[in-house]
Nucleic acid binder design. Structure first.
Length: 455
RNA sequence: GUGGUUGUAGCUCAGAUGGUUAGAGCGCCGGAUUGUGGUUCCGGAGGCCGCGGGUUCAAAUCCCGUCUUCCACCCCA
């Protein structure tokens, strides 16, 4: 039998990796809850009618499709099958797919359960998503997203709130970041002002989004492909460098939409002036974000000390549920990429001091009676909130000790005849090797105190 | 999806121009050491050389296909 493998772009998580990931999830979840968001869960599979057409043509290609059950070929579109037309064949052999993000399922969820929800509806979700992308570092086919969204309110307070959440999460995790803020309406206003056609807006957004990656000359070159003269391209690039909203007003004086966008940003900043932020927040007009459904504020978070692309982003989408037949419901939300956060924290050595996933104590015993005694003691300690492991048999003591040392235990509790006779347990600190005796009655209190101190 | 790159022991990697039984370090198991791990010494186990096919007297090595890894593009967390 050949060695087993897992599909490309997927990963196993070893205990220490899992523990770190849980730490990230827990930190994020705590903050989401503190801001009044409720968790929901939606299925890994959605119907393809829910998923297709929501992410653009490129996105559709990246959808994982699930073959129908049973004899799916007997019901296949024969014409499409004969002509090898994959696109046409798909609907006849697959009616489900894996979710591509958490936003579209949210829209579907809101439309389906409107009767049970009160607007504005604030929810968070921490679940895996799947994309049939070509894997690279920091880019997987299966990865977790952590999303918070508000559905059914136009208030710009939520933009400010979501920025606070970003700020607080990254501060709590000790990741230095810079938060970039822009507004799609401003971009539309710029496009309008410079005479870029509506149908070219998407291409325009993608081009300027690359400004931090490719040179200004190349960007200008690409802009001219949108029927822009060299001169106005140069002018446009200058406009994009503006970071002060006052300066921007005169440039967009002719665009009502653009001015509205400026006003929105101003209001968000007004909110944020009322509360301190830990990380830098700046206006960046070159921020565009690919997702086409954004219509208002857009935000992106970049780690300042690691080169890995964005580790979080989001924005306002005025017509979230429109595609599912419910018009006029606005949504605003952000998404945190857990896998990238993990990679950044690993690179910055931020997990080191956290003592993540440690068991408080392992009990080792030197004779049969002590082993039985250990089993009993283990039960008592667990009842006092101490996490306990017990070495399972009477292996040579050195071997037990070695096992304890290699595992993630804070203390080893050693029981032999001596300890049973005196009632004084031998406690060995596995981190620094120090050793002391603790009265049987005090063991639980002692360990709980040690754990508290290390937090 | 396009172009490139990678794969040898649990891990990191050697194995020029094809040529006996494929090596090292670390790790693992056992012993020195029957109440003390992460140090030392001695011994041992562990390989369809990613998978499939081809060329050859002979393939880890050359050719083709395929899977996987990483990189650039596209796009994105």
């Amino acid at each position: 039998m050949s060695k087993p493998t897992i599909p490309k772009g997927t990963r196993d998580f070893l205990p220490h990796q899992f523990a770190k990931r849980e730490y990230i999830f827990n930190t994020i979840r705590d903050i989401f809850v503190r801001y009044g968001y409720s968790g929901i869960e939606t299925p890994a599979m959605e119907t393809l009618t829910t998923l297709t057409g929501k992410y653009g043509e490129e996105g559709d290609k990246l959808l994982f499709k699930i073959l129908n059950n049973g004899d799916y070929l007997s019901k296949a579109d024969t014409r499409a099958l004969e002509t090898r037309d994959t696109h046409k064949l798909t609907p006849s052999i697959s009616k489900r797919g894996l979710r591509y993000d958490l936003t579209v399922p949210l829209a579907r969820f809101v439309v389906m359960h409107l009767n049970d929800l009160q607007l504005p509806f604030k929810r968070y979700a921490i679940q895996p998503v799947w994309r049939a992308d070509r894997p690279q570092k920091g880019r997987y086919q299966e990865f977790y997203q952590c999303d918070v969204d508000v559905v059914g309110s136009d208030s710009l307070m939520y933009e400010a709130e979501l920025i606070q959440i970003f700020d607080q999460v990254y501060d709590q995790l000790n990741i230095p970041v810079e938060m970039l803020l822009n507004n799609r309406k401003i971009l539309a206003g710029i496009a309008e002002t410079y005479g870029i056609k509506d149908q070219n807006f998407g291409a325009f957004a993608i081009i300027i989004d690359k400004l931090d990656k490719i040179s200004e000359e190349d960007v200008m070159l690409q802009l001219t492909s949108l029927d822009l003269s060299i001169d106005s391209s140069r002018q446009l690039l200058k406009t994009l460098q503006i970071t002060n909203l006052e300066e921007l007003y005169p440039v967009l004086a002719q665009s009502a939409l653009g001015k509205k966008g400026i006003g929105e940003l101003q209001e968000v900043l007004d909110y944020l002036r009322l509360t301190p932020l830990h990380n830098k927040l700046s206006i960046n007009l070159t921020l565009a974000r690919g997702l086409s459904y954004y219509t208002g504020c857009i935000i992106e978070v970049k780690a300042t000390s690691v080169q890995i692309g964005s580790i979080g982003g989001g924005g306002r989408y005025d017509d979230l549920t429109g595609v599912f037949g419910m018009k006029g419901v606005s949504g605003v939300g952000i998404s945190l990429g857990a896998a990238r956060i993990y990679d950044v924290m690993e690179e910055l050595n931020l997990f080191q001091d956290l003592q993540i996933g440690q068991t408080d104590v392992i009990i080792l015993s030197l004779d049969e009676a002590s082993h039985k005694y250990a089993f009993q003691l283990g039960g008592q300690l667990r009842a006092s909130q101490v996490s306990v492991d017990i070495y399972p048999d009477l292996a040579k003591f050195k071997k037990q000790m070695k096992y304890a040392g290699r595992g993630s235990y804070r203390y080893a509790l050693i029981i032999g005849e001596e300890e049973r006779a005196s009632g004084l347990m031998t406690m060995k600190n596995l981190t620094d090797g120090s050793q002391l005796k603790v009265d049987l009655q005090e063991v639980a209190a002692f360990l709980n105190q040690q754990v508290d101190e290390s937090k």
